[in-house]
C-alpha cells in the first residue's frame, strides 16, 4: 500500500488558499477595458478569485497591473525529479589536503563570464579571495591557481587561456540569460573545447542565477550551479570530480 503523498499549493495565509501575486504591463492605455483585459489574462492563466489591486497608466500607451488570485494547481513535491544533486560539502582543509596528497597537483581554474555578459559578481564570489557568504574564494586555497578572465571574454579567449594555462577546470558564470543568449555561448564554448581536443582533460562548469542545470548538461557541461552557490560547493565538486576522473 502506497503512502499518501501530501499535495501542496501556493500559500498566502491559509493552507491550500492557492494565493498568487502577479504583475504585468499591457501595451494599451489605462481604461475600463484595459482593466478587464488584465483580469481576463489572469483568468486565462487559470487563476480564480481574481482581484485587480492596482492599475496604473505608464504613459505613451502602456499600463501596469498588480493582481491577486488563487490557483487550484497542486503539486506533489516528492515526485519531482531533481537534476541538481545536493552534495555533501567538504571543508577548506580537507579540500587542500585531498588535492595535495591524493590528486597530487595544484589545480588551475580558468574563470570568465562569456559573450556580452558583464556581470562578474557571481564569478568573483566564487573565485576572488574575498569569497562570498563568509567563505573564502578559490584564490585563497593554496591548492588552486585561479586565472580570472573577468567579464565578457569571447569563447575563443577562454579556449586560448585554457590551453595556455593548462587548465584543469573552466568555470563560466552567466547572469544575463535574456533571449537565451547564454545557451548559444555555453554550447559554443563546449563545442570549441571539444573541437580543439581539450574537452576530455577539463572539468567544464557553469553557474548563474537562472541557469537550468538540465540544459547546461545537455549542451555539454559537467556541472551547473544555481543561485546562492558558495565557493565551498564549487571547490567540493571540483575535488570530487577530479579525483573520480583520476581513478
Amino acid at each position: 500500500m502506497s503512502e499518501e503523498r501530501p499535495f501542496i499549493r501556493p500559500y498566502g495565509d491559509r493552507l491550500n488558499d492557492g494565493a498568487v501575486q502577479l504583475s504585468f504591463s499591457l501595451p494599451i492605455s489605462l481604461s475600463a477595458r484595459s482593466r478587464e483585459a488584465a483580469k481576463s489574462i489572469a483568468g486565462r492563466l487559470g487563476l480564480e478569485q481574481i482581484r485587480l489591486v492596482s492599475a496604473l497608466d505608464l504613459g505613451n500607451g502602456f499600463s501596469f497591473y498588480i493582481l491577486y488570485g488563487a490557483t487550484t494547481v497542486e503539486i506533489d513535491d516528492q515526485a519531482i525529479h531533481l537534476t541538481e544533486v545536493e552534495r555533501p560539502l567538504l571543508d577548506f582543509w580537507r579540500i587542500n589536503q585531498l588535492l595535495e596528497f591524493e590528486l597530487k597537483k595544484r589545480v588551475t581554474v580558468v574563470g570568465a563570464t562569456i559573450g556580452t555578459d558583464a556581470h562578474t559578481v557571481g564569478l568573483d564570489a566564487i573565485l576572488n579571495a574575498k569569497g562570498f557568504g563568509g567563505e573564502s574564494g578559490l584564490e585563497r586555497y593554496p591548492q588552486f591557481r585561479v586565472v580570472n578572465l573577468g567579464a565578457q571574454a569571447p569563447p575563443d579567449e577562454v579556449l586560448e587561456a585554457a590551453r595556455e594555462q593548462r587548465a584543469d577546470v573552466v568555470l563560466v558564470s552567466q547572469v544575463v540569460t535574456q533571449r537565451n543568449a547564454h545557451l548559444e555561448n555555453l554550447s559554443l564554448l563546449a563545442e570549441m573545447l571539444e573541437a580543439e581536443g581539450l574537452r576530455q582533460d577539463l572539468l567544464l562548469i557553469c553557474g548563474g542565477p537562472y541557469i537550468d542545470s538540465q540544459v547546461a548538461l545537455e549542451v555539454g557541461f559537467d556541472a551547473a550551479f544555481g543561485p546562492g552557490t558558495t565557493p565551498l560547493a564549487v571547490a567540493s565538486l571540483i575535488v570530487e570530480e577530479l579525483l573520480r576522473k583520476a581513478q
Binding site: 504585468f24 504591463s25 542565477p209
Partner: peptide
C-alpha cells in the same frame, strides 16, 4: 537589475 534589462513597468 540582476535579472534583465528594464521592462516598461520597472522604469515606472
Amino acid at each position: 537589475e540582476a535579472i534583465h534589462t528594464p521592462y516598461v513597468q520597472d522604469r515606472y
